[in-house]
Design a protein around this nucleic acid. Structure first.
Lengths: 244, 244
DNA sequence: CAGTGGTCTAGACCACCGG
DNA sequence: CGGTGGTCTAGACCACTGC
């Protein structure tokens, strides 16, 4: 693997996976076709087998190819459209695939001490400042989701000046965070709406809601943000695509 | 790594990841603590570094630990919920990471014509045979999930002879399906239990349940199975890990 | 600086698949 | 059977972390 610009130096396994991705995009490796055997790729890229396998692992994890023992590695049939749940994106990024108009109303946007939210999923100095965001998302003017977010201001300085009616939280985080957003975790539960939630979603308290708890991590493992989301599944469904 | 029973022979890296999972469950490795360094684990298990890394990779993918360059591998905060959602696995595969005992009761196991389930997510000959499975999953004898599955017998011949109290559906599908399981799709909703569901889960009809609709595809894109799952989120939480 | 994980090599043996 | 991927070893060098 030649590499001309030292600034663009990427691990060899990433260069290989990108080269293969490119062949798949161009149609040189059509859907359903078999990739060259690992031994062939070793020779072609002049690397050890472990490096080829590391590259193929990435493509498998991305759902681009599927490796079958004793048979080979095959280009997957057409990639499913981006799903809301599989990669780390904000709710608005995923809902925006819909044709309906998405609007956001900010109910509260305050700076609070960490002691005001002891459930924050990592231990904080009680005096640390958090940005508290309380919003309602509507599709075609029907409220469908209530979102409460807590953001560590020390890890996203200046984010409190954002207009969150027009800017998605993830967009602001990408710009302001001291590190890169790296991973997240979501849990799903079913709950009944409490009075406050029911009011803003204009439903009764006996309606079951989809409740998501989310945590967003930076590269270094620090929790930069966490959120509670209640969704009315009569109006929005959470879907995800899965890879074996 | 000694291995006495050749029938139970598992790859060494899986034995190591299970050993570490067990230490985490038992509290020997508490939340937030650092795992032994890879070099230490090499000595302890008498394996090469690559094998240790393969084991840690599994735990990372399952969201149980988080590895940080130059620092170490840490036990993740939060309950170790099984991450059912990121890769295509059956419910039992994901719940089995819990320390509780998982049991399955089969309520019905019948062959029905496709006409009996018009909601099947692909167009079928009304006379085609489907295996209908109706099961209850319990953790420590508390019923936590009700599962209804419809499997196309023509794509998984002989699967109707399986004992589904001891064999997971995905295990049977892996063995019987005419192609490889390749992908799937899940949707999440919150619903109220109807009378029948409430009875089997021993809850009232006003309890909100997590409702999952799932579809499983083969390599060639054919729908081989679909299912409806109701889960009591007071007892089980669905979690997923997300990568940016 | 020492310790950690990330990458990479060059071999080896095995299990699975298909003809 | 030959070809494929799955596992595993025993090294090596490097980048990042924290003291």
């Amino acid at each position: 693997m030649a590499e001309t610009d030292p600034n663009l130096m990427l691990p060899i396994h990433e260069q290989i996976s990108e080269a293969l991705r490119s062949r798949i995009r161009s149609g040189e490796l059509p859907v359903g076709s078999r990739l060259p055997a690992e031994s062939t790729l070793m020779e072609e890229f002049s690397v050890a087998r472990g490096t080829v396998r590391r590259a193929l692992r990435t493509l498998n994890e991305q759902g681009i190819v599927q490796t079958l023992q004793g048979k080979g590695t095959y280009v997957r049939s057409g990639r499913p459209e981006p799903s809301i749940a599989q990669t780390l994106v904000g709710l608005s990024e995923s809902l925006s695939y819909s044709e309906k108009s998405l609007t956001t109303t900010v109910l509260r946007q305050d700076i609070v001490p960490a002691s005001a939210y002891p459930e924050f999923p990592s231990t904080l100095d009680p005096a640390e400042q958090l940005l508290f965001l309380d919003r309602v998302r509507s599709l075609d003017d029907i409220p469908v989701a209530r979102l409460k977010n807590w953001v560590r201001l020390s890890l996203a300085p200046g984010i409190d000046g954002t207009d969150f009616e027009t800017t998605a939280l993830f967009t602001a985080l990408d710009r302001r965070a001291t590190g890169h957003l790296s991973s997240g975790r979501r849990t799903f539960e079913a709950v009944l709406a409490d009075g406050d939630i029911a009011n803003t979603l204009r439903i009764s308290t006996s309606v079951p809601l989809l409740f998501l708890k989310q945590v967003t991590y930076l590269d270094d493992g620090a929790v930069v943000e966490c959120s509670d989301v209640w969704m009315d599944s009569q109006h929005v469904t959470v879907a995800m695509n899965l890879i074996r």
